[in-house]
Simulated assay, not measured.
Amino acid sequence: MAAPARRLCHVAFHVPTGQPLARDLQRLFGFQPWAAREAGGWRQLALRSGDAVFLVNEGAGPREPLYGLDPRHAVPSATNLCFDVADAGAAARALAAKGSCVLVPPVRVQDALGAATYTVVSSPAGNLSLTLLERTGYRGPFLPGFRPLSSKTGPGWFSHVDHLTLACTRGSSPTLMRWFHDCLGFHHLPLSPGEDPELGFEVTAGSGQGGLRLTALQTRPCSAVPTLVLAESLPGAASGPDQVQQFLARHRGPGLQHVGLYTPNITEATEGVTLAGGRLLIPPKAYYQLGSDVPCPAAGSRPLGESGAGQGTSDPSCRS
């Protein structure tokens, strides 16, 4: 593999000035401001709940925001995943050799608490870019160049990111699976016994109603890297576009469709989000009606946030 991912550092959003994403993450989901940076027309705010970190890049400046880039995408969205790697420079060279475009060559950032090096590369998933970060030895709370904010903690409903789901075009999952395997060290995680990695796991919505094909990937068991789920629509005469088709149409291609957050108490988290004004969605009936011998990716749970929730997880949408 070119650059094995060791940990998810953060998920980055790009939104226009005045878009209330950061406020909603605090008010609806209990995330707390952790570190901030304002420079070059950008306001960058890192928000945290447990080990789950979202970096909201707000505005648009003449230069790229630190640790990422401006995708210049028409729809505000989650457009970047930042992973810790052992050597950012070597990672950039290795991924370039495998055909990835290095969008931001390795950059070293330093402050009084240490230094970090990062590079940004393209991915095969539409507008989603990847930041590969080398920060061994940095002693600050977040990253060089950011000032720490209050350490006051909020409700603490969520402990970490459980999974990341990419909306994919039909038939593209095998290609994406091989790319994430070769470049970042992900391996197929079967969702049903004897599952063919090329075919994935089908969640149908009934006869003639279409459904989803899911392919799960992980780096290794008990890893600090979340599970990656590739989701694509199944052929079928559905009454309307499903969530993947809606995402592809609105975002004009593939991308990060939702983030699954792990909560140790889904009842408490559900009540907290509801009382704060969060909107809960009801998943398709067939999603929870599989045989007991098949480990449904969301079995035994209740939905929370802007998408269906896995067991012990809640999924606020990354669609802003």
Rank of each mutant, 00 (worst) to 15 (best):
Y287I: 04
P226W: 07
T131V: 00
D51P: 09
S233A: 13
A309D: 03
L228A: 10
A35C: 14
T270F: 05
S314D: 07
G194S: 15
T79R: 12
P295F: 01
G156Q: 15
R48T: 01
G154K: 00
R147F: 14
G59M: 09
H258E: 04
H187S: 02
L275D: 07
A22V: 00
V15A: 03
W157I: 09
P235G: 04
Q257M: 15
E232Y: 07
E195Y: 08
R139M: 05
P295A: 11
H181W: 02
G308L: 13
H188F: 15
L113N: 15
T119E: 10
L55Q: 14
V120D: 01
R213M: 13
P197Y: 13
R7T: 12
T274G: 02
S301L: 02
P190D: 08
H187C: 04
P20G: 11
L8G: 05
L214N: 00
P71N: 01
Q19W: 14
T153L: 14
L130C: 07
L133R: 01
G114Q: 05
T219W: 01
G145W: 02
T165K: 02
S172W: 06
E195V: 05
V15K: 01
S233Y: 08
T270A: 08
T270G: 08
T313G: 06
A96H: 12
H73W: 14
A3D: 02
M177H: 13
S207K: 13
G145N: 05
N57Q: 01
P124F: 06
Q246N: 07
H73G: 11
T153N: 13
V56Y: 13
N265E: 10
P241D: 11
P226V: 09
A269L: 03
E202S: 14
T270W: 12
P197F: 15
L143E: 12
L25D: 06
A237K: 07
L95M: 10
P235R: 02
D162N: 05
Q32M: 08
R213E: 08
G137D: 05
A286S: 00
V15Q: 04
L66S: 13
T119Q: 08
N80P: 02
A116C: 06
A238Y: 06
I282N: 03
G41R: 11
L189W: 04
G208H: 08
